[in-house]
Amino acid sequence: MLEVRSLSIHFHRYARGLRRTVLTPVVDLDLKVSAGEVVAVVGSSGSGKSLLAHAVLGILPSNAHIEGEIWYKGQLLTPERQAAMRGRRIALIPQSVSFLDPLMRVGAQVLRAAQLSGKNRHSAAAQRAIFQRYQLPLEVERWYPFQLSGGMARRTLVSMAVVGEAELILADEPTPGLHPEVVQETLNHLRQLADEQRGVVLITHDIQAALQVADQIAVFYAGTTVEIAPVTAFSGKGEGLLHPYTQALWRSLPQNEFIPLPGMQPSPQDLPQGCLFAPRCPLATAECTAERPTMRAIAQNQVRCIHAQG
């Protein structure tokens, strides 16, 4: 359904006076999402997770320069096609409740989302139906966003994204700061959407949340995908994980060994020449620093490491 092929994003900005600097927060990123599948994108902050969503929707700021290709249903996504798709075929579930208009009644906002996604004639019915589906009482229609509880606001945002005919849902950090029950509910909604043959991308830094609903997990590091693995690989001591960063991330969970990997992600201003993970990698050799590794398929996984073995 969605295929991202070696996507890179550069930002040009003026540091001081006319001196320009180039930031490269996304480097050679690959990702594939099929219908009926939840793909979780996991990584630390600054690993390019949200930029990916923005690139797919075509809403990056004007100083961004994009390389690589994004394909949607077998067709290349051009800026014109992105403009036609976003909000209709491809929808975003935003990170925070502050994305709702504070001065507009909730019902009207969902209705407007339905109209914009092309449901003109039946939009009122569609809005009612979606409220029922997500167990929002009818009177909520007339409420303002500040009157909603965290869980209701979350359900409203989901309603707005799926009231139309969106086939691809991008959910950007939908869970932090919520009660465990609301987290569970939000994740279940995403799973249901995938079971209706839509494609879902779940962007999160919370591996445990991702494990509950995802079919595949894509691990981001410094703006690239280091590994894409089926959810079953994330178990036990992580024997099914092939990239040293993925293994380290798994080991650092409190229910596992809680051993962190020292150091930090490289800054997008000066990325290493070769493999982006090499400066922190225990397996790094001279070959690693010479050239950026490409994605390789090993068993069920796809991994960007020359040392990985099945």
Binding site: G43, H205, F258, P260
Partner: peptide, 14 residues
């Protein structure tokens, strides 16, 4: 460390 990734969380706690 609620809003941090697992690795940074473990680093800070250590």
């Amino acid at each position: 460390t609620t809003m941090l990734d697992a690795n940074t969380q473990a680093q800070l706690w250590q």
